[in-house]
Design a protein around this nucleic acid. Structure first.
Lengths: 194, 194
DNA sequence: GTCTATAAGATGATAGAC
DNA sequence: GTCTATCATCTTATAGAC
């Protein structure tokens, strides 16, 4: 496995800046300063800011895939999978009040390179596909109850978590995220049959 | 009433740019070009970009207040009030795939002037206060059913609508917003008593 | 790989003429 | 009120030395 320390550090720092400030509010200089290199060195690894952004999305997609695989391997009850899924978002917020990478790029959507926009959509779809599977299985075995299609339910949960992060950030208040997340999950509990 | 055409046009154009591109991705030049004036003229009305942003928020708060008053005056059933409330967000999205003004500023949160951040929080609270009243009344008269407090329910709906806009924007797909909004409202319908 | 030097353009903001 | 002219700074990106 090709390990490149500087490159990874650049990605880490750029990601933090992207998630807190947005794509258009951080510069190569911001990154270079924190990594303690010069901006020219960043261009060596990532010729353009778009390349840097694409690398961030690609790495993130891999990490999300790994995280979802881990959830699948470790818990089997759909309710518990969703609870674990929610913690992915929560821990991002905990880490310096960061926004979700995809959510932040969604806000910057209009200014994105078309290729970046396409990868962003694919990232969202990664989430939706996994969630849809969880919802389908949950309904099948009677552990989750909802009215619409699994696909729409997946989209709804993802959207709501993005929004909960967005607003919680503004108040720098994790409990806002928590109470929304709790409601979102509890409404999926099947009621005891009359 | 002090009408100032140029000033209003600057606000209109700046608002569109802010809602589509974000605070850090539009410039005085962008605004000036569209209004067909020079950047120096914008500085005459709004000395700094922060002043411009504060004016946008203040105007928006007034307009939101007026819109909510209109809903209160025109419909009385809580369910219908919420449906009307949702259309406020939907029509923003319809208008050139714009993000909610507050939602966009929430994404830019880390880069905001402290005063702007404070006004942003107040804007969110305007929504939450109105929604909380609707939820309280709805529960009292048995027209709305939900498990948590009216306050949390208000926060949840607002957050989810913000998130639904954010994601729908990325796919340039109003139907994504619609299906989420429909689910959010339908889950509030009280079930017939057994 | 990392640096210095530099280009070429954008950006927020001000001074002062009209 | 709106303009021209100008400023200092920032930003992405490249060339070429080490």
């Amino acid at each position: 496995m090709p390990s490149n320390e500087t490159r990874d550090t650049v990605l880490d720092v750029a990601q933090e800046l992207l998630q807190t400030r947005g794509f258009n509010a951080f510069s190569f200089h911001d990154v270079a300063e924190r990594v303690k290199i010069k901006t020219a060195s960043i261009h060596y690894y990532f010729p353009t800011k778009i390349d840097l952004c694409l690398a961030l999305i690609a790495r993130q997609r891999d990490e999300v895939k790994a995280a979802l695989d881990r959830i699948d391997a470790e818990v089997h009850e759909p309710t518990k999978k969703l609870a674990r899924y929610v913690t992915l978002f929560r821990s991002t917020l905990e880490m310096g009040n960061r926004m979700c990478l995809c959510g932040m790029l969604a806000a910057d959507f209009e200014t994105l390179d078309p290729l970046v926009a396409e990868k962003l959509r694919l990232s969202f779809e990664d989430h939706e596909i996994w969630l849809k599977r969880v919802f389908m299985e949950g309904k099948r075995i009677g552990k989750l109850d909802f009215a619409g299609s699994p696909r729409n339910e997946a989209r709804l949960l993802l959207s709501c978590l993005e929004g909960a992060m967005l607003v919680a950030r503004t108040f720098e208040d994790l409990s806002r995220f928590d109470s929304s997340a709790r409601s979102l999950l509890s409404r999926l509990r099947p009621r005891p049959n009359p």
